[in-house]
Design a protein around this nucleic acid. Structure first.
Length: 520
DNA sequence: CAGTGAGCGAGCTTCCGCTTGACTT
């Protein structure tokens, strides 16, 4: 009996194992089943009987209790079956009893290890009756490898999970009742949500104490055929100069008859590396920015795509791609953009996946799923295969394009920066104007950049050093300093992840709690 | 005697993280 967490994996794994049994690589017959995530948890609240017991403390201590945790006895947790899991557990018990050996194949992360341990308890498995096996990809070679080389159940991980669980309850169930009493019933506090809330509060405080300050700088419209709108620089510096209104107007007057000369033209090539494959947090951010989807909506649609066998697992903190996926990317990129557009890079230049230091990497990156022929389904054939909502189609297309782009060359742009001096009666003012032109679109052929990123581009006419420019209009332009922006769902999730707060399966839930309980 | 209303007491809210599908709006 093989037990995994997600039922959608069962059939795939069963099929793979069956082929190995057929060619005698494996000696058992296999049955694959799933736990559907966790099977046990701390009780939501103590039974009234237990509460009464706890009210009278023989040792005279203040009767303080936390549901499901024995405070007097080394914080021993009490576990109960999750509501509704009874029939499933019974079925697993039955299967386990009739199986020669139980392979615990839950996810190779902290929660997965704990689920495996809970299974040993609930299914009453002696150490000789079970083995722990792990794999991060559901491919024939990896599955065979895993089954042939079982590992020890990692009790350190199991303890870590239990500690996490107990601490979360201790904190949440201690602070929340204070809020009911002091503020309003039904409020909540916890290790994750309160940190998220604090982020929002802190940002709002920064905004409140921010003093908007007006400033001016000077724009010079020069030349006949073009109008480079340069920014005036601080004397002897390459930084933009911020002026007071009076000084700005004064300078406009002085410069109105100035002679403008190009004193430096600097051109550099800039390369921008392709992005990393999607993981949950970045998918949520991009779907929010590009498709205008709420975090929760993104996850719902991604779940549909996953169930249709169109994308890999959508709750992941890894940007790793399997070898099979790399091959499929090669086929797609070569087919659509030509063989020279596949960018393997040398071992030095290749961008290594740089995952968050909090990542547990139980799964792959979020990418298109491999079809039976070993390649990705092109977005244009998507609707022929399966009926999908507009949103699902757009999300799949975004994932497909991003996955290809990750293995394509960097985008190269030519950045030109021109320094112009305006001289009048001994006063010299330096202006700078910059432009950028794409010389090699690189990965943007597959995955276009944000409108925001493209805004940086500006056409610049050919200019040479020493060239005299015709003075046109000189303007003082008023600006205001801006407070830091409020979070949106995307930037909020990004910040949570970078702080290591929450997990891929909970990002959307955190947003939901803050909204539903009207904390924000 | 039926209906009304005051007063009282009991029970509930809450954490985080892993999974679906069975529910209702």
């Amino acid at each position: 009996l093989v037990i995994v967490e997600s039922p959608s994996k069962c059939q795939t794994i069963a099929k793979i194992l069956a082929t190995y049994v057929k060619d005698n690589s494996l000696a058992y017959d296999f049955q694959v089943s799933s736990s559907m995530g966790h099977i046990r948890n701390l009780p939501k609240s103590d039974t009234s009987k237990k509460k009464k017991e706890n009210q009278i403390k023989p040792n005279g201590k203040f009767p303080y209790t936390i549901a499901g945790i024995d405070l007097e006895n080394g914080y021993q947790p009490e576990y109960v079956l999750l509501p509704g899991k009874g029939p499933l557990v019974k079925e697993l018990q039955h299967l386990a009893a009739n199986a020669e050996l139980v392979l615990l194949a839950t996810d190779p992360d902290r929660e997965g290890e704990a689920i495996a341990w809970h299974l040993t308890q609930v299914l009453d498995l002696a150490p000789s009756r079970y083995q722990r096996v792990t794999f991060t990809e559901i491919t024939p070679s990896r599955i065979l490898e895993a089954v042939k080389s079982p590992v020890e159940l990692n009790t350190n991980l199991v303890h870590a999970q239990e500690t996490r669980r107990v601490l979360d309850r201790l904190a949440g169930y201690t602070v929340s009742p204070v809020l009911w009493k002091k503020i309003a019933p039904g409020l909540s506090a916890g290790r994750v949500q309160s940190v998220g809330m604090a982020m929002v509060v802190q940002r709002e405080r920064e905004r409140l104490c921010f003093e908007t300050t007006p400033y001016w700088n000077i724009k010079a419209v020069l030349g006949k055929d073009f109008s480079p709108q340069g920014q005036i620089l601080r004397p002897g510096s390459s930084h933009k100069r911020h002026l007071l209104e009076g000084d700005a107007n004064e300078l406009v007057k002085v410069l109105s008859d100035a002679e403008f000369t190009v004193i430096q033209v600097k051109s550099t090539t800039r390369k921008q590396q392709p992005p990393q494959p999607f993981k949950t947090s970045t998918l949520q951010q991009e779907a929010n920015r590009r498709l205008g989807m709420a975090v929760q909506q993104t996850m719902r649609v991604a779940q549909q795509l996953y169930e249709e066998g169109l994308i890999s697992y959508m709750r992941t903190d890894s940007t790793h791609l399997s070898d099979d996926a790399e091959c499929a990317i090669g086929v797609s990129v070569r087919g659509q953009f030509g063989p020279d557009r596949l960018w393997v890079g040398s071992s030095k230049t290749k961008r290594k996946p740089k995952d968050s230091k909090f990542a547990q990497e139980a799964h792959e990156a979020i990418r298109p799923a491999l079809q039976p022929d070993g390649i990705f389904l092109e977005p244009r054939y998507l609707l022929q295969k399966v009926a999908l909502s507009d949103q699902a189609e757009r999300l799949y297309t975004m994932i497909y394009q991003r996955t290809l782009a990750c293995r394509m060359p960097p985008i190269a742009t030519n950045q030109t920066s021109v320094l112009i001096a305006g001289v009048q009666e001994g006063t010299t003012a330096h202006f700078r104007v910059s432009g950028s032109v794409v010389i090699d679109p690189g990965y943007t052929l597959a995955y276009c950049r944000d409108a925001e990123e493209e805004n940086d581009e500006a056409y610049l006419p050919a200019l040479r050093e020493g060239q005299i420019l015709n003075a046109g209009e000189i303007l003082a332009v008023a600006h205001e300093t801006q407070p830091p922006p409020r979070y949106n769902e995307a930037s909020f999730v990004k910040e949570l992840e970078s702080l290591g707060v929450g997990r891929p399966s909970t990002y959307s839930g955190i947003v939901q709690i803050l909204r539903d309980r009207a904390y924000v």
